[in-house]
């Protein structure tokens, strides 16, 4: 007789912990063929608010680390993900369908994407910041700083590569985030949060919510302590418009949904829309 496997309970990731939804609710997740995979946590509005609190609490410490350090931590995430390549290939294959080879290519691309962004940690400031040659005796310079707490609606289709591609550029510059995962394909995201938890990413920097967006996205969009919202995974135009409208309550920075090729090399834009430019002036004199 073959061994009975030990299955994982898929929970949320909030503030470095893996809690179930405070609502006690779950929803059924199936594979690409409709076969039962797991009962994932169905995050509530309260879970979303708790996740924002955790992200805000983590912001000062994460933004205050040196860019070199954040780059090392992100590189560590890539290392740990590489080490769990087979597990992720299996999960991606079950979530998205397709062949093992395709799933492995997705995992490889995800690792490479993390390495790419890790390298940007201590370079982006030199590319987008600098000194300003003002017409008066002042030293004047501009530096990029993280915007703050970011709500990320992860892509619905690409459960791992898409997720990594929207989360890495947010946190590499010092922002913290609350990620609402793909609704139908949430499991790789939860397993990825285990990778983050074992890679020196401080608790609260990336918080992961699973479940229908209708339960959490309105709360994140209107939350007054969220500074920006990425609507990439919003689903319908109607929802995206409603959440962009709600985001105006505290003038969140908003990224609208757009067609994306997750395999293409990203530009700087997913980092720069979450960077505030700070300009500092000081007189020059004896």
């Amino acid at each position: 007789m073959s061994r009975v496997d030990v299955r994982k309970t898929y929970k949320l990731a909030i503030g470095g912990q893996f809690p179930r939804s405070e609502s006690g609710r779950t929803y059924e997740v199936t594979d690409a063929g409709g076969k039962f995979l797991a009962n994932a946590s169905r995050a509530s509005r309260k879970d979303a608010r708790d996740a924002v609190v955790a992200a805000r609490k983590a912001f000062g410490g994460w933004a205050g680390k040196t860019p070199y350090n954040r780059g090392q931590v992100l590189y560590r995430v890539a290392e740990v993900l590489e080490g769990r390549r087979a597990q992720f290939a299996e999960e991606v294959m079950r979530s998205e369908g397709g062949t093992r080879r395709q799933a492995e290519a997705v995992v490889d691309a995800s690792v490479d994407r993390l390495v790419w962004y890790a390298g940007w940690a201590d370079k982006v400031a030199q590319v987008v910041g600098g000194t300003n040659p003002v017409a008066a005796p002042y030293f004047d310079f501009s530096v990029p700083e993280p915007t703050g707490v970011v709500a990320v609606l992860a892509p619905q289709d690409s459960s791992l590569l898409g997720l990594v591609s929207v989360v890495a550029p947010v946190v590499v510059t010092g922002n913290t985030c609350v990620v609402a995962t793909s609704q139908l394909r949430p499991l790789p995201a939860i397993t990825f949060s285990e990778v983050l938890a074992t890679s020196d990413v401080p608790g609260g920097v990336v918080n992961v919510l699973t479940g229908p967006l209708a339960d959490t996205a309105p709360t994140l969009a209107s939350h007054m302590d969220v500074n920006a919202i990425d609507l990439t995974g919003a689903g319908t135009d109607e929802d995206a418009t409603a959440w962009e409208t709600a985001a105006a309550d505290n003038l969140k920075r908003v990224r609208r949904p757009a067609a994306e090729d997750w395999l293409a090399e990203p530009g700087l834009d997913r980092m720069t829309w979450l960077l505030e430019t700070k300009t500092v002036w000081h007189p020059i004199g004896i």
């Binding site: 003002v134 017409a135 004047d140 003038l251 430019t277 300009t279 500092v280 002036w281």
Partner: peptide, 23 residues
């Protein structure tokens, strides 16, 4: 804050980025 003036205030220049954080 988007602009910090140290030992000066209300200085502006076409070369110098200006704009805000938050609201």
């Amino acid at each position: 804050a988007g602009v910090v003036w140290a030992n000066t205030f209300n200085k502006f220049d076409p070369t110098s980025p200006f704009g805000g954080y938050k609201e």
